[in-house]
């Protein structure tokens, strides 16, 4: 039992943090929103050069073959800057699936190529137009296509930096990949969404804390008043308790058993709840400024909203937890020790 992170894990996370904090600035967000571009070329090049797209890719496919925990730490940093470049779903979910089904696919050989993935049959696909390959779903079967083999229609997201597409496709014109492990994809997508949620939440609180220290009313910083600081404490508490379960869930994701699946659901629910409460609190603390387009807090509220529904809604994940609770025996001999068995 050990909750400490390895030096390698911390080093990758720190590299990502430095890169993101330098380049993913409010000016960067404004530029992407105004241009409608999928990515900033300079930023994407640096993401690729630092190896962030290779973390979850197996070594046989030219990747680093690291685990979900390593990538979750990167996703958390991506959440902190509301990254909209297609790193998390592409490198965290789509690339490992393609590597499992078609290890020789040339797209995998290009670390700068992004891969989009359809979460559920008929569902919208994130960043489909800029992807080198799109993984599509029909039943349990997976297919891969390039954007020009399918018809893409942009669908506006409530999150102005999220680029969603409806996909029309003919399965005779795309390449079949056979049966895929969609449960694993869901677990990966959910845990990396949860990790992003932690980052979103912390950023929303940090922004509000800064503002509450500066903004004065009745002759004092508003952050000195309990009516204000208590909201922020509640949000920070949610983050503090979401983070260990996200890390624990990521650390055991690969085992894919009933306990680790439940842990993913716990993490997905609470991390996005933390992001939601933090963003709502941050808006309230910012007062009328918080409702304005100019102050960036709304971007975090909207990203939290979008990620809450992505990779399994809270309802879906709660049902997964409830199903396990009501079908498994309860009692002292079945509780905490058992979950340690797969650790």
């Amino acid at each position: 039992m050990d909750f400490t992170l390895s030096d390698e894990q911390l080093m990758f996370a720190e590299t990502a943090e430095t890169l993101f904090y330098d380049l993913v600035t409010p000016e960067h967000w404004r530029k992407l929103m105004e241009s409608g571009d999928a990515r900033d070329a300079a930023l994407w090049n640096q993401i690729v050069e630092t190896g962030l797209t290779l973390i979850q890719l197996p070594e046989e496919a030219g990747g680093l073959g690291l685990g979900a925990l390593d990538f979750a730490l990167i996703a958390e940093k991506a959440g902190y800057v509301a990254l909209s470049e297609p790193l998390v779903d592409s490198a965290g979910v789509a690339a490992p699936m393609l590597a499992a089904l078609a290890p020789d696919d040339p797209v995998l050989a290009d670390p700068a190529a992004s891969i989009a993935i359809q979460q559920e049959e008929g569902g919208l696909v994130l960043d489909a137009d800029s992807a080198a390959a799109i993984i599509l779903r029909k039943g349990d079967q997976a297919f891969v296509a390039s954007p020009d083999q399918v018809t893409l229609t942009r669908r506006e997201s409530i999150d102005p930096m999220r680029r969603l597409f409806a996909v029309e496709w003919d399965d005779s014109k795309v390449q079949p990949l056979g049966q895929a492990d969609w449960d694993l994809a869901l677990d990966r997508g959910a845990i990396f969404a949860a990790a992003q949620g932690l980052g979103l939440a912390q950023r929303a609180v940090d922004m509000a804390v800064e503002y509450a220290k500066e903004r004065q009313q009745f002759g004092k910083p508003i952050g000195s008043y309990q009516a204000v600081k208590h909201h922020l404490s509640t949000a920070q508490t949610a983050i503090e308790f979401a983070r260990p379960v996200v890390l624990a869930a990521a650390a055991t994701l690969e085992s894919g058993d009933i306990q680790s699946r439940a842990r993913i659901s716990h993490a997905k629910i609470v991390a996005l709840e933390a992001a939601d409460v933090a963003a709502r609190t941050s808006i309230q603390v910012h007062g009328a400024m918080g409702y304005s387009w100019e102050v960036d807090v709304h971007l975090f509220l909207k990203r939290a909203l979008a990620l809450t529904s992505a990779w399994g809604t809270p309802y879906f994940h709660r049902q997964r937890v409830a199903a396990r609770l009501f079908t498994q025996p309860v009692g002292p001999s079945t509780t905490f020790a058992r979950e340690n068995e797969n650790g």
């Binding site: 609180v205 804390v209 509450a212 220290k213 952050g223 600081k229 404490s233």
Partner: peptide, 8 residues
């Protein structure tokens, strides 16, 4: 708020 977040 005061010890963790550094609010006044």
């Amino acid at each position: 708020a005061e010890r963790g977040l550094g609010l006044p």
